[in-house]
Design a protein around this nucleic acid. Structure first.
Lengths: 302, 302
DNA sequence: ACCTGAACACCGTTCAAGT
DNA sequence: ACCTGAACACCGTTCAAGT
């Protein structure tokens, strides 16, 4: 249960870094241990049952602690064999693991190095900087989902299935939305899924122009929705409340607003704080589909 | 509640401001909904020109290096007068200024303190931590826009005008989307605009349930779109390229993909990298409107 | 070729101590 | 009551070394 929270007071609570974009100059910032183990209900995330990409090393061994195995004597240079020990792939996989396990704020160069039993400076042989690492990590979030399998003749059914699967996939990945929303991804995994989306939209009869624009609309809307959803979830966790309590409190706040200035907010306080985000998502996607349908219908007559 | 536990360890006198506990961890932050004046005339938001609250010392000298004028002797305690010198409002305004001028990554506690001619530790009397500061800053991004003025009988026209205005507003604010997309905002400025949106949607004839859900859909979709747009823009900047060059390069990359595996991506490379994001936004909003229209139409007959 | 220690210039946050 | 210096435990990144 998510109830155990309240930032740990012994340790400095470091604010949320708002991420790490700056390629230069000032670093990103700190990590916030404010977030606990990510207990909020929902299907188990981590490595679960999702389909993997093609020939990936899969979940890989969890990075052995210390090389050499002996005493604490760390020597310079590299240890023995002339196998690289590190590769870009290994670094990236460790990043994925770290992100899934401890969240985005725990993904630091030093932390990642520790995950690999190595020092931070070593990583710079495999990634240009942290920003590039996060870009790669963002694309990597799509490694485990292949929308191609949802392609079918009934375009409405296909789009609905894709949207549902994508939402579920992202929600199951810690901080995925926060990571993705913060950068512009055009990596290989993303493209595979765009391809599937375009297949369906063109199959529905949309023009090239409309298909491309509709795909963009679907993607940004879905990301926007899931980002908001994942943020709300972590706001609940940060507040140390169960979802229901958090929402009830919010509803209470809304209802307490001056009714002359916010009549609709007050009147709809209940609806606005409805807990079932899956229903809201279905609503959103249904509206989008209906909107696209209008375009399909307009094209058909000819 | 994360708020009340963790009493200050050493000093009993160091209790945090009473209102902080009352306001609760959520978005709104420490100030309750009353919110001080904050003229927010909207127009010039740039740097020096922002509207001020009531009796503020105005823009104040940009933090003179040394007080007293003489040697580098910074003394403890506060200097002379017993006016507070800092208030929550002043801190927040400085944050807004810093964000607008130097971007989100420049908003650090130390940097903000420097902006105010003060040391970082002083800020903790006015904000609980950086995360809360950013929450307040996120809501503050909506201080300068009032969607109420776009309310009108023609709901389609109203929604279109609102969406356009909101997009333009956010795009004009450095890193606004990145800031907002990363947190769940329920502050006073946000609520005012939600109110306007709900007014229009209910006016269109939607049920309470549908109006609330449609509002949520509009907001998350729009944020998703603008976040992607602002990210792309900053990706261009980070790449040090002109927009056209950046997109041409991207189009080239897409066209170079294996056509057997990504036939649609390759075929639509041009459309997918179309530079006119305003057109894409209009497309997205038109689809959403059409989707909502289907709902309105379904409700009307009865 | 690959990894490291050490350093640099930053972070957020706490707290006893000044005025 | 309000602000500060100093400290703590972190950051990202560079670079001259070691092996």
């Amino acid at each position: 249960m998510p109830t155990d929270r309240t930032p740990p007071r012994g340790t400095p609570a470091h604010g949320r870094p708002a991420d790490a974009a700056a390629a230069h100059g000032t670093g990103g910032g700190a990590r916030s241990d404010g977030t606990p183990a990510h207990g909020s209900g929902r299907p188990a995330h981590g490595s679960g049952t999702t389909a993997h990409g093609p020939g990936r090393p899969a979940d890989a061994p969890p990075a052995e602690g210390v090389p050499g195995g002996g005493a604490g004597a760390r020597r310079r240079g590299r240890p023995r064999k002339d196998e690289p020990a590190l590769t870009e792939r290994v670094v990236l996989d460790a990043g994925v693991r770290l992100l899934a396990r401890d969240g985005l704020d725990a993904v630091t160069m030093r932390g990642l190095a520790a995950e690999l039993g190595v020092r931070a400076a070593s990583l710079y042989r495999y990634v240009r900087n942290k920003d590039e690492l996060l870009d790669a990590l963002a694309d990597e979030q799509f490694a485990g989902i292949d929308l191609t399998r949802y392609v079918q003749d009934d375009w409405r059914a296909a789009l609905t299935a894709m949207a549902t699967a994508l939402r579920r996939h992202l929600l199951a990945r810690r901080d995925a939305a926060r990571l993705i929303a913060g950068r512009f991804t055009t990596g290989p995994h993303s493209l595979r899924n765009i391809e599937a989306l375009l297949t369906v939209l063109r199959g529905a009869g949309l023009s090239d122009h409309d298909a491309a624009f509709a795909a963009y609309t679907c993607v940004t809307s879905l990301f926007g929705f899931v980002a908001a959803e994942q943020n709300r979830l972590s706001a609940e966790v940060a507040a140390g409340m169960a979802p229901r309590e958090y929402l009830d409190r919010l509803a209470g706040r809304l209802r307490a607003m001056p009714a002359d200035r916010y009549p609709n907010v007050v009147a709809l306080a209940g609806e606005l704080t409805a807990p079932d985000l899956a229903a809201r998502f279905d609503f959103a996607m249904a509206r989008l589909l209906a909107g696209i349908d209008a375009l399909v219908a307009a094209g058909e007559p000819r």
